[in-house]
Design a protein around this nucleic acid. Structure first.
Lengths: 224, 224
DNA sequence: ACTAACATACAAACCAGTATGTATGTTGAG
DNA sequence: CTCAACATACATACTGGTTTGTATGTTAGT
């Protein structure tokens, strides 16, 4: 029979085993960093044996790559890329996303999984870095695309460079994330979000978008 | 004789040995992170033996604390705190500092030593975190103090919260630093600096500071 | 019966820290 | 001034523990 996923608890369920390993590995890496993450810790958390793990992943590195490509990429898609495509005004969408970012103490203290790994591994392991960079670029591109849409709809100031503004936003989000992580204090994060929201509001086009008379204050830099 | 520092190369020069260990340890930690930094690597880089190292430092952790308190704290003093006290207009001083930050490819690729350590150790080791936090707070406080001075001199907008603006600046510097480090590309850093400078300019008070008619664009949030 | 999916035991390398020894510098008593 | 007594500054070799990865065996599913 071709019944694919019968849900009686089978003794062997390779997909499920792989997924559980990935999730546990992600949590452990998120806590301790990749290099300090222990294989044995992951195994203990899952009640899976070493043989099983090395059956599904060739090495610790391969496990790390899978974390990036399957778990972290999905986090960014769910929290940014998908919401960016929703309807509503550009700036309102961005403010909504930023406000909806995880802000529980545990999240703040652990830091952004993407940034944690990038920070640790980018100078040390090029394949790792490449995979993380792809995610950052997709993130930036998603934000920039929405900003461009906002510009063509007249809701976003025309005198800003969407790519640089997107990068600016990401830098602020990750920057505040780092400060809050060091402070181990969700309050730092909340204040950061408030200031990011304030900056986002400043990107709105003026009421009746008039010709000339551009203000030089606080834009992200004109295109050169 | 009380001649303190005779400069003939002595066979034993504890201060120099300690300093060389600290510098080598700093470089190794800066490259690999604290946890992955190997004692043996540091020893190999200095031609100092393990006995000597453990004579000067009680443990690897103590060595790490010394790196923070003696080397990293000094970096922040030299690059920020001291220049902040120079003369000139507040915003010009800040722009000068930001523009003068190390931007060579090697620096960009390795990342900010302060942030690297904070990112890695803050959730794992409280004494470590505390020491790093002290540096961040001194940094923020220095910037905030200068901004307040600028406000009282009329060169900086009055409708911004100096503490939050300082924090905003630090978040941006570290955020762009992280992005550039992941990209392993100094160009990313340069673009970031340009945008930070653009933001700094927007903090200037308008020419003849007029009453009323405040613009709501792009300020860091009024004091609540 | 044949292969994918595990389990177990072990290897090999690494690494922080220590035990112990030695050489160099300092000091104080005579 | 001198030399014995001591303290500081190293050097070397080793230990105990941890870690990734492998070799080999066993069992479930088709």
């Amino acid at each position: 029979m071709l019944v694919a996923h019968q849900r009686k608890r089978r003794l062997r369920d390779p997909e499920r085993t792989r997924e559980r390993l990935l999730q546990a590995a992600f949590r452990e890496v998120h806590r301790s960093g990749f290099q300090s993450a222990g294989i044995d810790t992951i195994l203990a958390a899952t009640n899976v044996t070493k043989g099983a793990l090395y059956h599904h992943f060739d090495s610790k590195e391969a496990l790390g790559y899978a974390i990036v490509e399957e778990i972290i990429a999905k986090l960014v898609r769910d929290r940014w890329l998908r919401p960016l495509l929703g309807d509503g005004q550009t700036i309102d969408i961005l403010i909504g996303i930023v406000r909806g970012l995880p802000a529980r103490p545990a999240d703040v203290r652990a830091g952004c999984p993407l940034l944690n790994l990038a920070q640790e591994m980018s100078p040390l392991d090029e394949p790792f870095r490449k995979r993380l960079e792809r995610i950052f670029l997709a993130w930036q591109d998603g934000v920039a695309t929405l900003l461009r849409k906002g510009q063509s709809q007249g809701t976003v100031r025309r005198n800003l460079n969407p790519d640089e503004a997107a990068s600016f936003l990401i830098a602020m989000v990750e920057g505040y994330g780092s400060l809050a992580k060091n402070a181990q204090d969700a309050k730092v994060w909340e204040v950061g979000i408030t200031n990011i929201v304030g900056w986002l509001r400043s990107l709105r086009a003026p009421r009746q978008s008039r010709r000339g008379g551009r203000r030089a204050t606080n834009r992200i830099q004109d295109k050169r």
